[in-house]
Write a protein that binds this DNA or RNA. Structure first.
Lengths: 195, 195
DNA sequence: TTTTATTGATTGACCGTTCAATAAAAAAAT
DNA sequence: ATTTTTTTATTGAACGGTCAATCAATAAAA
């Protein structure tokens, strides 16, 4: 079994197992024993590849953030010089991408949000992400709206996206992605139409 | 020192201490020893008055929920038959009441949200609250809008409120209550104006 | 022979709960 | 009015349990 080049495989396995464990019992009870069991390996391996539990958690958050970044930028890359509305819709779609709307990922996001209030490394990651969303939205609104209005529209849309997402995570029925996107689209339209 | 009638006093003290501890180190590290120290009592007292830590946490969440309910209903009581917009503004104002926008309360909210995904008793409390916000908003929009439109407006506004709140809790600068309220007002206006 | 991969028992720290002990007020009895 | 009993309040050490981290041992590839 053991040979060279296991690192990337194990790391992916363990991150996936982390999300499963958090989905199953929450971050507070996602022990390394449970995570290791999900991945089908021993506990020692976690320290070996991630320098301990904290390292694994940070890597897991980075992983989700990476997926989000990809989901957004892939959609936008095809757009080029398209109108602001198209870019705004792409950003919305990216935020409601399948990779971000599974139960386990939404739960993990929520757990990391709460946790980031007290762990500076997670906090840093989360803030980079927050700002990126805001500044992407802001610069697109800025193409069609005066500065103050663009800023408010960006703040509002960012909050609406996060709020839809949060309520979807908490709701029994889960997140209705189609309806959420539609509500966000409506917000964009109203912001762009209003003179 | 010891005499009769300590129960309500200790309960309030311990709930307050819980919020302080969560603000200080987060729910995960808010041990009963730390909470008891904040309240200036011994650890045993927590089990005595709350049947253990879980009971205290649930009571703390109930306390915050109670404050929120009061903040909203007090504002609305004075309104009577006032137009829908006035009621909607009152609901918004209640949700951004001082009792709900302090750092410690916002942090605690976020922690409880994450925790409620895996503790059915907290989940119940949180869902009752979610539904109340939605149904309050919905019934007010229903006075001026057709059913589907009212439903969507309520969903959107609920998400916007929660999202503004969430981003305020996570942001370095904290929540700018005045600006948040204004964005929510704007959303209401756009929903009511659009025919 | 060296390097990489992996295991899992052990260790040390910590946490929530329990409970016997203590103290003071309230209630009952004298 | 005084003593006795009961009730309420509180403490904090002791206990049982859990967890993350460590590390010596093992095994297979390089």
């Amino acid at each position: 079994m053991p040979k060279v080049g296991m690192q990337p495989i194990r790391r992916r396995q363990l991150i996936e197992a982390t999300l499963e464990a958090i989905d199953e019992v929450g971050l507070a009870d996602a022990t390394i024993a449970r995570i290791a069991r999900h991945a089908g390996v021993s506990t020692g391996i976690i320290s070996h590849y991630f320098d301990g539990k904290d390292g694994l958690l940070e890597a897991s958050m980075r992983h989700i953030l990476g997926d989000l970044g990809s989901a957004v930028s892939e959609r936008r890359r095809a757009l080029g010089e398209a109108p602001a509305q198209a870019h705004l819709h792409a950003i919305i779609d990216g935020n409601f991408d399948r990779s971000q709307t599974s139960r386990s990922v939404m739960k993990t996001w929520l757990a990391f949000w709460a946790s980031s209030m007290h762990h500076t490394n997670l906090q840093r990651l989360q803030r980079v992400n927050d700002r990126r969303l805001y500044s992407n939205l802001s610069s697109q609104f800025r193409r069609v709206l005066p500065k103050r209005q663009a800023r408010d529209a960006a703040r509002g849309l960012a909050a609406l996206i996060d709020g839809l997402w949060l309520r979807g995570a908490l709701a029994q029925e889960g997140l209705d992605v189609e309806r959420a996107r539609q509500l966000a689209y409506d917000y964009v339209r109203e912001q762009l139409d209003t003179p």
